[in-house]
Design a protein around this nucleic acid. Structure first.
Lengths: 153, 153
DNA sequence: ATGAGTGCAAAGGCTTTGCATTAGG
DNA sequence: CCTAATGCAAAGCCTTTGCACTCAT
């Protein structure tokens, strides 16, 4: 049967989604922003600003930083902090599948991994508990595994 | 029976432990380093460098940064990254109980929370799986809940 | 037209480093 | 004694901001 593709971020849909999330904040989906989203979509891991500029040299530094800020604010991208001086960016959840990170403390490389359903279930149970006990309104969770990647061992 | 105190970081023992971890790296446990550890021990949440200097004005900026680096390297302290420009520091695990963080994205405040045994069990199962599948040698894990604290809501 | 977006260059701000001095073992 | 540690000041470095120009609606 010819149902819609199970691939959520099928390119076109990705951009439509990004445009609409930006539009909701009265932000325009300009060609630079689209190009930036393309870079993020093509990258199979979170990337730094230098890496983005390298992937698409037509992008400028300051505008890209500004646009990354807008994308994060609009829920199109996410910012990840690693202890190597750089901020890493990736497409936000909803434009990607839910996942977590393994960070190599030696080379800074970040890979994705998907947690088991059991783990996610426990995670959400914990989130609810914490919200309940502390009055904290949890909007997202981060689970990172820190270690040494195969190449650096 | 007069067994040792169940309080792991009973002050004296904390410093002995810190001294020995530094000693293993041929680093001296000087009075500034001891004072720094004291600040971390008294703080009930991760702290930034300005907060450390405020808590103990006898400490100097550059040496404290350098010492924090040594403490982290020696496994006495841990560094936490938050998206407010500052690095946060706390006593490392082993000198403290195992815990995770709830981060307020509005004011930057970080609180501790302890995960349920079930969650930790699933977490460790996942760690092992990832190590197995990716060749990644996982040395630690980070679980942060991001949201808005009661005061900022 | 008119406000958002862009890009260059300059400024910011946390952190690191150079270097001469002091102190620990 | 000899090396690690300290502290002031200066430099680094990723990121942000000022400002004039351009583009989209």
């Amino acid at each position: 049967m010819d149902a819609v593709s199970p691939i959520e971020d099928s390119g076109i849909e990705l951009h439509q989604d990004a445009a609409s999330r930006l539009g909701a904040r009265e932000l325009r989906y300009t060609s630079s922003r689209r190009a930036l989203v393309d870079v993020l979509a093509r990258a199979d891991r979170p990337v730094t600003l230098p890496q983005i500029l390298q992937a698409d040299p037509t992008l400028s530094q300051s505008s890209t930083y500004r646009n990354l800020g807008e994308l994060v604010g609009a829920g199109v991208a996410s910012k990840i902090l690693v202890d190597d001086g750089y901020a890493y960016y990736e497409l936000a959840e909803g434009l990607r599948h839910h996942h977590h990170h393994v960070v190599c403390s030696s080379c800074g490389r970040i890979d994705d991994f998907t947690a088991s359903a059991e783990l996610e279930r426990e995670l959400h149970r914990t989130l609810a508990q914490v919200a309940d006990r502390t009055g904290f309104e949890v909007s997202e969770h981060r689970l990172d595994l820190i270690g040494t990647c195969a190449d650096c061992r």
